[in-house]
Computed example of a mutant assay.
Amino acid sequence: MARRCEICGKTIAFGIQLSHSHIRTKRTWAPNLQRVRAIVDGRPKRIRVCTRCLKSGKVQRAI
């Protein structure tokens, strides 16, 4: 399963790691995803959401 936020679509970012001796290696940055129960179309459902969406209130949690 792909690691992406189901609200904003945030996914893995790619780049390079640069050491002190300027050795360049490829690396990735993964989003901080949490599996939460949220209200989707009026019903509770488990979705993967990034912590930025949780903190900003874009997700209505199911209790």
Score class of each variant (00 low, 15 high):
residue 1 M to A: 11
residue 36 V to C: 06
residue 41 D to H: 05
residue 53 C to S: 04
residue 16 I to E: 11
residue 36 V to Q: 02
residue 58 K to E: 06
residue 44 P to C: 14
residue 36 V to K: 04
residue 15 G to H: 13
residue 44 P to E: 15
residue 25 T to K: 13
residue 34 Q to I: 11
residue 17 Q to N: 08
residue 6 E to G: 03
residue 35 R to I: 10
residue 20 H to E: 07
residue 44 P to V: 12
residue 37 R to W: 09
residue 57 G to Q: 11
residue 8 C to D: 06
residue 4 R to A: 15
residue 17 Q to V: 06
residue 43 R to D: 05
residue 16 I to L: 03
residue 40 V to E: 08
residue 17 Q to D: 13
residue 58 K to N: 06
residue 3 R to G: 07
residue 1 M to V: 09
residue 49 V to R: 00
residue 49 V to L: 03
residue 58 K to T: 00
residue 29 W to L: 07
residue 8 C to E: 01
residue 53 C to P: 01
residue 57 G to R: 09
residue 38 A to D: 00
residue 59 V to A: 04
residue 58 K to D: 03
residue 17 Q to Y: 10
residue 51 T to K: 08
residue 14 F to Y: 15
residue 36 V to D: 01
residue 24 R to F: 09
residue 55 K to Q: 13
residue 53 C to T: 01
residue 22 H to Q: 06
residue 2 A to F: 13
residue 7 I to L: 10
residue 19 S to T: 15
residue 2 A to R: 11
residue 7 I to A: 05
residue 47 I to Q: 01
residue 11 T to D: 15
residue 62 A to S: 14
residue 16 I to Q: 04
residue 22 H to S: 06
residue 55 K to W: 06
residue 2 A to W: 05
residue 56 S to Y: 03
residue 31 P to S: 10
residue 48 R to V: 00
residue 28 T to W: 04
residue 24 R to M: 12
residue 53 C to Q: 02
residue 55 K to R: 15
residue 1 M to H: 09
residue 55 K to N: 13
residue 20 H to N: 05
residue 20 H to A: 05
residue 17 Q to I: 07
residue 50 C to R: 01
residue 52 R to L: 09
residue 21 S to D: 09
residue 27 R to H: 14
residue 3 R to V: 13
residue 43 R to G: 02
residue 50 C to T: 06
residue 6 E to A: 05
residue 14 F to A: 08
residue 51 T to C: 04
residue 48 R to G: 01
residue 49 V to E: 00
residue 3 R to L: 15
residue 54 L to N: 02
residue 54 L to F: 08
residue 52 R to N: 06
residue 42 G to Q: 05
residue 5 C to M: 05
residue 14 F to Q: 11
residue 47 I to P: 01
residue 44 P to I: 14
residue 15 G to N: 14
residue 57 G to P: 14
residue 54 L to K: 02
residue 53 C to E: 02
residue 9 G to Q: 02
residue 47 I to G: 01
residue 20 H to I: 06
residue 62 A to W: 09
residue 1 M to R: 05
residue 43 R to C: 09
residue 62 A to L: 10
residue 31 P to C: 12
residue 16 I to W: 06
residue 17 Q to E: 13
residue 35 R to C: 05
residue 6 E to V: 08
